[in-house]
Amino acid sequence: MQRQGSIGGNAVIRIRVTGGVLLVAHLALVAWLTLRPLDVPWVRPANLRPLAGIRADLALGWPDAAARIGAGLALLAPLGFLLPMADGRLTVSLLGSLFRTAATGALISLGIVLAQTGVPGRVADVDALLLNTAGVILAHLAFVPTGRAWLRRRARGGEQEPVTAETPQGRTPTIPRVGIVP
């Protein structure tokens, strides 16, 4: 059975499988990058004040600040389009999709930050959570609406698929309610 609002046939399966495989690969790369122990002589204290780390990065100057803030934005940014791609729906509200994707990205980032507290050489940083979530939101806004519009146009303009048990055939007939006989 097919989800409402998704494209039919093999295309939805290919998009979902590709999205799922890329999502798992990206999350494995992120886990490898962020959860490896670091061999450092000292560890700075955890940053639990929002925007304090970003202000400190900006105080370093343009190239260093851009590199650090850009890395924070880019770490989980692919989730902004990989999560909707793995979902596979085309007709969904932009705001609902953005909220679900941003919430999932924030929860994954929170999980990484919490897991880093047990890794030697790593510390919790609330600014990483903010930057990662902002990166997911920006990537979603940049790619998902145009990608869905392109796929909808392609699905409408392409050849029609044969009607099978998996393709929608119209409204489901309803049975009128009958009261209980006394």
Rank of each mutant, 00 (worst) to 15 (best):
M1K: 10
Q2P: 12
Q2S: 15
Q4F: 09
G9T: 00
G9S: 02
G9R: 00
V12I: 06
I15F: 14
R16K: 07
V21D: 03
V21G: 00
A25V: 07
A25G: 08
L29T: 01
L29R: 03
A31G: 03
L33K: 11
L35I: 05
R36M: 13
R36T: 14
R36L: 12
R36D: 10
V43H: 11
V43Q: 15
V43D: 11
R44P: 14
R44Q: 13
P45Q: 05
P45N: 06
N47C: 04
L48V: 14
R49I: 14
A52F: 03
I54R: 02
R55Q: 13
D57T: 03
A59F: 03
G61T: 10
W62M: 06
W62P: 12
P63I: 10
P63D: 08
A65I: 09
A66W: 11
A67S: 10
I69W: 15
A71C: 09
P78Q: 08
F81K: 12
F81T: 15
L83N: 05
R89G: 05
L90Y: 01
T91C: 05
S93H: 07
L94T: 14
G96H: 07
G96C: 02
S97I: 01
S97P: 00
F99Y: 10
R100M: 08
R100E: 00
T101I: 04
A102S: 15
T104G: 15
T104I: 15
G105S: 08
A106C: 10
I112P: 03
A115E: 07
T117G: 14
T117R: 15
R122K: 10
A128Y: 13
L129G: 08
L129Q: 10
L130C: 08
L131M: 09
N132K: 04
T133P: 13
A134L: 14
L138R: 11
L141C: 13
P145R: 03
T146S: 15
R148M: 04
R148H: 05
W150K: 08
L151F: 00
R152T: 04
E159V: 15
E161T: 01
P162H: 03
P162T: 06
V163L: 11
V163M: 01
Q169W: 10
T172Q: 07
P173L: 04
T174S: 11
P176T: 09
G179N: 05
I180S: 13
V181H: 09
V181W: 08
P182T: 09
